[in-house]
């Protein structure tokens, strides 16, 4: 029976490694956890950093993280597939995440979301044909009073600590225009 590729024996993955920054972060965080618990406890933070480095979490990244932290690939796969913020599929250069949950829904989030779908020519979780933008409908981002709200991530770049709030047709158009030009409109974020 074919096994999931991530269940292979732990070994180095040729051509891929965890960055020195990740190693430094591991060294920094390791003593924060009790003896014998740090390896597993670091599974989430290291997976997230590895995604920032490699763009998404595939079987190879799973193997790298498992080998470094002394975990089975099965455990790391279980974690990687559980959490929404870990991309199992390589996203476009920009990952536009629009909240449509109740607070945003009531004040027009689906109009914003439909506009994104139409302009990008994609469905939920789809990537535009030019590979530039992946559009994802997300759950509540805890900014309900200032919705509709979106968040943007840039692949293989440090995270963008901003929300894009009070979205309407004009503001989402400006965001989509900027992304098409190859830049994140941080001036529209807060």
């Amino acid at each position: 029976m074919a096994r999931h590729p991530s269940f292979r024996a732990r070994k180095a993955v040729p051509g891929k490694e965890l960055s020195t920054q990740i190693e430094a972060r591991i060294q920094q965080l390791w003593p924060r956890f009790p003896e014998g618990r740090a390896g597993q406890a670091l599974c989430l933070p290291v997976l997230y950093l590895a995604q920032e480095q490699h763009g998404h979490v595939d079987a190879e990244v799973v193997d790298l993280v498992a080998a470094r932290l002394g975990l089975t690939s099965a455990h790391v796969t279980g974690v990687a597939t559980f959490y929404f913020m870990l991309n199992k599929v390589r996203p476009g250069r920009y990952h536009l995440q629009v909240c449509t949950n109740i607070g945003c829904q009531l004040i027009g989030a689906y109009d914003v979301f439909e506009r994104c779908k139409k302009r990008l020519g994609v469905d939920n979780k789809g990537t535009s044909a030019d590979g530039n933008v992946t559009l994802t409908e997300v759950e509540c981002l805890a900014a309900c009073g200032y919705g509709p709200v979106a968040q943007i991530a840039e692949r293989e770049k440090p995270e963008i600590p901003l929300y894009f709030e009070n979205l309407d047709a004009t503001r989402i158009d400006a965001i989509l225009d900027a992304l098409a030009e190859g830049r994140v409109p941080t001036e529209l974020g807060s």
């Binding site: 965080l29 924060r32 956890f33 406890a41 989430l44 933070p45 997976l47 997230y48 559980f82 959490y83 929404f84 913020m85 870990l86």
Partner: peptide, 8 residues
């Protein structure tokens, strides 16, 4: 120590 969730 700050520990970050990953969207759940």
């Amino acid at each position: 120590t700050v520990y970050r969730g990953l969207g759940a």
